[in-house]
């Protein structure tokens, strides 16, 4: 009963705020804040915590250039969650979408706006995204998305201030659902059928996490476009 009252109370508060806040304006502001960063280069380290996958912590160099160019250089193999690393607010808001302001929420002591974005474009994989936006620095603190084939995922961002003026992520935590079938071996050994038995809990959907730590940022150094001409 108490829970119901609290929920109702929260809802009504949210509703009042939402009438005052224009989600598009907030998103626009986020975009503008981000636009001051022409490009950047950073060292990233990737840690994977996914059931059915074991990988050592990997180091790589990440290059970004507006609007959504990503280039990764790695001495060895690295596996990065597409949504986490490729995420650029611009690409999300640029395409046709509708949005509404849901409520305000305090996340780790930061006052933030909760905004829902629904792409109107059929081509998009995303069905619905919820964004938590820092209302002071206009940064995305957290995204939760439903994606068409592979379930939901969430990305949480921790920011650091570079050169006293640019806010860039210091740490990303990417959480997603893992269907074990997704990682099933396609080239099983015919000769060792023992290896073919399914893991006992293969039916359960599990959660995977990828942590990316950013360091050694170089911002707006003028990275040439040619760097991004490759596939990455």
């Amino acid at each position: 009963m108490l829970l119901k009252i609290v929920t109702l109370l929260f809802f009504s508060i949210g509703l009042t705020f939402s009438q005052n806040k224009d989600p598009e304006k907030i998103l626009e502001r986020v975009k503008d804040e981000f636009k001051v960063i022409e490009d950047y280069k950073a060292d990233i380290s990737v840690k994977v915590d996914i059931p059915f996958i074991k990988m050592p912590e990997r180091e790589a160099k990440l290059y970004f250039k507006q609007p959504d160019n990503i280039h990764i250089e790695s001495e060895g193999f690295a596996m990065l969650p597409k949504e986490g690393i490729n995420f650029s607010p611009i690409s999300l808001f640029e395409s046709e979408h509708t949005s509404f302001y849901e409520k305000e929420e305090i996340i780790e002591g930061i006052e933030s706006a909760v905004i829902k974005v629904i792409p109107l474009n059929d081509k998009s994989d995303l069905v619905l995204s919820t964004l938590w936006i820092d209302l002071e620095r206009y940064l995305i603190l957290k995204i939760e998305s439903s994606r068409k084939p592979t379930g939901t995922f969430a990305i949480e961002f921790d920011y650091t201030k570079i050169n006293e003026k640019y806010y860039l992520p210091e740490r990303i935590e990417f959480t997603f659902s893992v269907e074990p079938l997704m990682f099933r071996s396609r080239n099983r050994s015919q000769l060792n059928p023992d290896e073919n038995k399914q893991p006992e809990d293969s039916s359960k959907v599990k959660t995977g996490k990828v942590f990316i730590n950013y360091s050694n940022y170089d911002v707006n150094t003028g990275i040439p476009d040619s760097l991004f001409s490759g596939k990455d």
Binding site: A60, I72, E73, S74, E75, G76, F77, A78, M79, L80, P81, K82, E83, I85, N86, P149, T150, F176, M182, F183, R184, R186, D232
Partner: peptide, 12 residues
């Protein structure tokens, strides 16, 4: 193939 749906694979 399945991995590359969700992940960016870099390296050799």
């Amino acid at each position: 193939r399945d991995l590359r749906q969700s992940f960016l694979l870099v390296g050799n």
